[in-house]
Amino acid sequence: MEYLLESNHLCKKFGSLMALQDINLRITRGKIIGLLGPNGSGKSTLIKIINGLMTPSSGELTVNGRTPGVETKKIVSYLPERTYLNEWMKVYELLDYFEDFYEDFRRERAEQMLSNLRISIDDKLKNMSKGTKEKVQLILVMSRDADLYVLDEPIGGVDPAARDYILKTIIGNYNENATVLLSTHLISDIENILDEVIFLQYGQIRFHRSVDEIRSQEGKSIDQLFREVYRC
């Protein structure tokens, strides 16, 4: 069986700091997976390696059997923690930009979601609130027919109502051949949409389990378990 995402003995060092240590991951299609862990546990480093923005110090990571690069970027849709979009651009220019860049971009889908949220395609990114900007970015990312969606803190900066909309957007747009990997601190808000969780700690995988299994075996929510595992 071929995994959508696989890593073997993946390590990343920054000087003497081990940011990731012996990460062995097997991720299949059709899942929504939470990448959880406190600050500095290695979430962003792992996400950057998946997207080819950093390379491993040792070990390997593959997406659909390939090392991250031009080919994998065609099938991975990535929402970074910080925006990389040009502030002066209008929404329709961003749509053009995505359409140029990605063969799998579905413009009608993006336009539909924008109109549901009453965001005008003539608006400039610069003039939008932080929450609206985040929604626009998520819409762009979720409007691709990708195999893997990697969302770094997709609900961090938005209010609870917008959070609900974003979660519904994630549920509604991924298909059973795709997988969504998302990192967040706001576990209680998202745990009902997760199939599996990966807990990272000090650059290592603490565990990788199914959410229903945790609930039935431990009798507690992911949020409660998180607070116990990472108690300060």
Binding site: G30, K31, I32, D164, L167, K168, I171, G172, N192, I193, L194, D195, V211, D212
Partner: peptide, 17 residues
């Protein structure tokens, strides 16, 4: 499944189950 999952705000696989 998808409609119910969106309504409940849960994972579609869980709703399927």
């Amino acid at each position: 499944v998808r409609e119910l999952a969106a309504e409940a705000s849960v994972n579609p696989n869980t709703m399927q189950k």
